[in-house]
């Protein structure tokens, strides 16, 4: 038994080391004597934060009803709906970008119908690209979170005189909050790092991923590492913070 445990420990550690190896590479590759941002990096940071924030708002407003619907209702063609939710995820980012460009871009039928020329290279296009890239992650996680809330509790809330909407707000949401926060954290990381879709439909305004690419092309590696550091420092804390907040008061054991 002991050697079995040791083997698992060893293989596990090796796997973990392999996964985090590139991050150690970043530490050694960074030229700490010439560590400074290049022009436009700060603007890219601001763009990324602001647009990802907007995108998360859209993801929550759009994704939560879809996730709840899938978690609580049985309907004909549910399998198909499940597949459709995953479709943007299964499509390669570049292809997704092209699809979005042909829908929302110049001569796209949505623009023609709604009376605008093109969304390409606008903040709206940037947010749109992020939403398509991250929403499926949120929906899949949120759905699991809703499914974990006993339906019985919602029913009891109904018999206590609450409307279905009040039940959702006062029972379902608080009990699903841990999973919803995890989904949002995941979606945040995905949206912030979205490159392929954004590159096609919103090269401008530039966010961090595209700016990294531009820096690499125009200046070279030395302009990439500082921005990469900023990227990690910005991208990581928010999901961690969400996890921390939702875990606080987690001493409440779910029955």
């Amino acid at each position: 038994m002991i050697w079995q445990r040791r083997t698992i420990y060893l293989i596990g550690s090796l796997g973990l080391a392999f996964l985090i190896l590139p991050f150690f590479g970043l530490i050694s590759a960074t030229n700490w004597h010439e560590f400074h941002l290049v022009s436009g990096d700060l603007q890219a940071l601001m763009n990324s934060l602001a647009f990802t924030g907007c995108a998360m708002l859209v993801v929550m407003l759009l994704g939560t009803p879809v996730a709840f619907w899938m978690a609580r209702h049985e309907f004909r063609g549910k399998n198909i709906a499940e597949f459709l939710v995953l479709a943007p995820l299964l499509t390669p980012p570049l292809a997704m970008g092209i699809l979005l460009a042909s829908l929302y871009g110049p001569y796209g039928w949505i623009g023609q119908t709604l009376g605008f020329e093109s969304l390409s290279n606008t903040p709206a296009a940037f947010v749109l690209a992020q939403v398509y890239g991250s929403c499926p992650y949120y929906i899949v996680t949120a759905r699991a979170a809703f499914e974990a809330v006993p339906k019985e509790l919602e029913e009891v809330a109904l018999t206590l005189g609450k409307s279905p909407w009040q039940c959702f707000i006062s029972v379902t949401l608080p009990l699903a909050r841990l999973g919803l926060a995890a989904g949002l954290g995941l979606a945040w990381v995905r949206a912030l790092g979205e490159f392929g879709i954004v590159l096609i439909i919103a090269y401008y305004p530039q966010g961090m991923p595209v700016k990294l690419w531009v820096n690499l092309q125009d200046v070279g590696l030395r302009a990439v590492y500082p921005l990469l550091w900023v990227f990690f420092l910005v991208a990581m804390p928010i999901p961690l913070l969400l996890g921390f907040i939702s875990r606080r008061g987690r001493s409440i054991k779910v029955l």
Binding site: P150, E152, E155, K162, P174, V254
Partner: peptide, 17 residues
């Protein structure tokens, strides 16, 4: 929600939060 009925399911359905 509009029936004046109190309902206790098996396990009582208390809100754990």
């Amino acid at each position: 929600q509009r029936r004046s009925v109190g309902y206790l399911p098996q396990g009582y359905g208390l809100f754990p939060h």
